[in-house]
């Protein structure tokens, strides 16, 4: 341990919800997209799942909204260091979509991609079992464009770069294919509780 002379830091709050190396952003919700926020109307939005699945399929906004709704109440964690507590997203569980396309038994990973072309890679196991959503709402209102509206992927148990904004689809794969940040030195899985920020962590 290299103690920094004279550094005391914030008052300590024992918060079991805060992963290692993170701080509580409070009411802030920083925007960190690397591209121009797209001007994407809900009527122009679509979501597709294909690749190693039995029945590839595309949903329109209306078709996605016809699926059973599901909410996430909890925390989110950004690799840059902030965590945000007590957020509420509304949308549809990703399980509802995956159940309809039926991933092959050989499927192990997915690349999530945005309407901007952004990509991020995830183990398929992190997208199933009620742990991932397609989110349309934040705090009871339509998701703002700068936060990924009209719809974003939500995988809150991983660092938030995995929760692709302006989600356009998932390509289901039988191997890992690094997405944008993963090719730029970030971790393949990104579990905040193990502080998997960069490749090699």
């Amino acid at each position: 341990m290299h103690v920094t002379r004279g550094f005391t830091g914030r008052p300590r709050v024992s918060d079991p919800g805060l992963p290692p190396g993170q701080y509580d952003a409070g009411d802030d919700w920083p925007v960190l997209s690397a591209e121009v926020t797209p001007d994407l109307a809900a009527t122009d939005w679509s979501f597709r799942i294909d690749g190693r699945v039995a029945e590839p399929r595309t949903w329109t906004w209306a078709e996605a909204h016809a699926l059973p709704t599901s909410a996430y109440d909890g925390d989110i964690h950004c690799v840059t260091g902030w965590s945000k507590f007590g957020v509420r997203f509304g949308g549809v569980s990703l399980d509802a979509f995956l159940d309809m396309v039926r991933p092959a038994t050989t499927a192990t990973h997915a690349v999530a991609y945005s309407h901007t072309g952004y990509t991020t890679s995830l183990p398929l196991a992190d997208l199933t079992g009620g742990r991932a959503w397609i989110a349309f709402e934040y705090d009871g209102r339509p998701l703002p464009a700068e936060h990924g509206g009209p719809a974003r992927l939500l995988v809150p148990h991983l660092y938030f770069w995995k929760s692709a904004k302006w989600i356009a689809g998932l390509r289901i794969l039988d191997h890992d294919e690094p997405g944008f940040w993963e090719q730029n030195g970030y971790h393949a899985r990104g579990n905040p509780w193990e502080e998997q920020r960069y490749s090699g962590d």
């Binding site: 690397a34 072309g117 794969l173 191997h175 944008f180 090719q183 490749s199």
Partner: peptide, 30 residues
């Protein structure tokens, strides 16, 4: 892979400019 790397239907706005070394980024230096 015969099928090649997955490419999203729209080109990403900001493709990375340089290759990044995972090993240098992993080390804390004084």
């Amino acid at each position: 892979m015969a099928s090649g790397r997955f490419r999203p239907p729209s080109r990403f706005a900001v493709p990375g400019r340089i290759a990044v070394s995972g090993s240098t980024a992993a080390v804390w230096r004084t």
